[in-house]
Write a protein that binds this DNA or RNA. Structure first.
Lengths: 232, 232
DNA sequence: AGTCGTATATTCGGTGACGAGTAATCGGAA
DNA sequence: TTCCGATTACTCGTCACCGAATATACGACT
């Protein structure tokens, strides 16, 4: 949607924390950590300071003072501006209400798995589900422990992450089953191709057919975004 | 895991297509499109040419010839090298077998939703599920149509994407229900905070507690990656 | 008194991602 | 025949991201 002046998701977190009360960059990182947000928002020092500078440049936050303790480096404290507050609310609203396709690497990998052997792919995917199971088990345990000390509202991101991990594991299991019992159509051709090098008819067809149908029917309508960025 | 010399996922697709047969960059983009991969791998012209150049620089592909038709710009054709083929297999194997946390924006947004009103959040999330439902409906229809003409193996990425979208919609619905019937703990405090500005005790506790427990128990073990990149 | 480790706080250079822009050609309609 | 729009093919400048490195202070221990 609306192109953000500062597009990094970290900027949203900065706005949120600075809206709560004026803070200096390092403190922002600390609070983010102590509240466990570093699991859901990637904090990177380089990015943090760049982001803060950019937010200031665009008038979304302002420096309210520079102080120093002893001979430590100066700490510039920032507060949110009215524009920044508005931006934050609008942006957050957008992120919550519209789903954008973010091209997870796994999806890309799936689309290219044809270059490997079916059996090899099965082995790899089995490893994946095992890893996910372990991850979910650990996550659930930690979450349970946290839920004892904290209202669940403050933990929804974690519940979401786990739910999605579980969903993925379920889906991959399904795929594995379908490969195993040969109920997934095309595995035979795939195997044949890997053994002989003869390209599956489907590929040839597609490459030839090109865009006899509208090329990107779906892609036109769905929003997309790969990485944090849209500056403009 | 292993830091990739060329980290952009698009590079993997380039390797895969060029391993099939020598191609020039523009052709790569075309094939990617005609095979419908642009839904699962973000193709960007700027990135494509950079990626090809980098792959060549690192000896993963080699230019096999330059020809031109009429006075069109030259087309440099590239073929995969042995190193490139190995890299592709290993990389693809890694992407399939290990799940990395890619920090979806929605997860970040969820972790910050506290700055909005509960009712507003509900409204926004309702919009989201509706949009997802629509997306899934359209996707399922298109997929059904494609499944008629193509073996399903070639469509797994799409099935995956839809499965995940559905899972997300299910989860969000669950959350909405829990907010609505007040079975999600902390909504009361949240509401109170929004109305009065009194910070929930939980936040204060956390900010104070800082890292009396190991700060990033989980984060240490899970791999992470925000955006395409790791160059090194 | 020395020094080791950790917390504080930030800078900086390199790299790559991006998408708008360019430029040439071709096919078809007026 | 000429003009328009689509297609082919690629380039370039800008901008953001990253994380390693820097520099200082403080507390604890020897």
């Amino acid at each position: 949607m609306a192109r953000r002046r500062v597009g990094n998701t970290l900027a949203l977190a900065v706005l949120a924390l600075v809206a709560e009360q004026p803070r200096h960059p390092y403190e922002i990182a600390q609070v983010l950590r102590s509240r466990g947000k570093e699991n859901s928002i990637k904090i990177n020092y380089g990015s943090l300071y760049t982001v803060v500078r950019n937010l200031e440049k665009h008038g979304l936050i302002t420096a309210t003072g520079v102080d120093r303790e002893g001979r430590r480096p100066e700490r510039t404290t920032y507060a949110v501006t009215e524009a920044g507050d508005a931006e934050m609310r609008e942006w957050l609203g957008e992120l919550l209400s519209v789903r954008v396709h973010e091209f997870p690497r796994f999806e890309g990998a799936l689309s290219l798995m044809g270059v490997l052997d079916p059996d090899q792919v099965s082995t790899l995917l089995e490893r994946r589900v095992e890893a996910i199971d372990a991850h979910v088990a650990r996550g659930r345990a930690e979450l349970a422990e946290l839920t004892g000390r904290l209202p669940r509202v403050f933990l929804v991101e974690n519940e979401y992450e786990l739910a999605m991990a579980e969903a993925e594991a379920r889906w991959v299991r399904g795929l594995l089953d379908e490969i195993a019992d040969d109920s997934l159509s095309g595995v035979a051709e795939w195997r044949h191709f890997r053994a002989t090098g003869e390209a599956p008819a489907a590929w040839v067809d597609m490459d030839a057919a090109d865009r006899e149908l509208a090329p990107t029917e779906a892609a036109e309508h769905d929003q997309e975004a790969t990485t944090d960025d849209p500056t403009g």
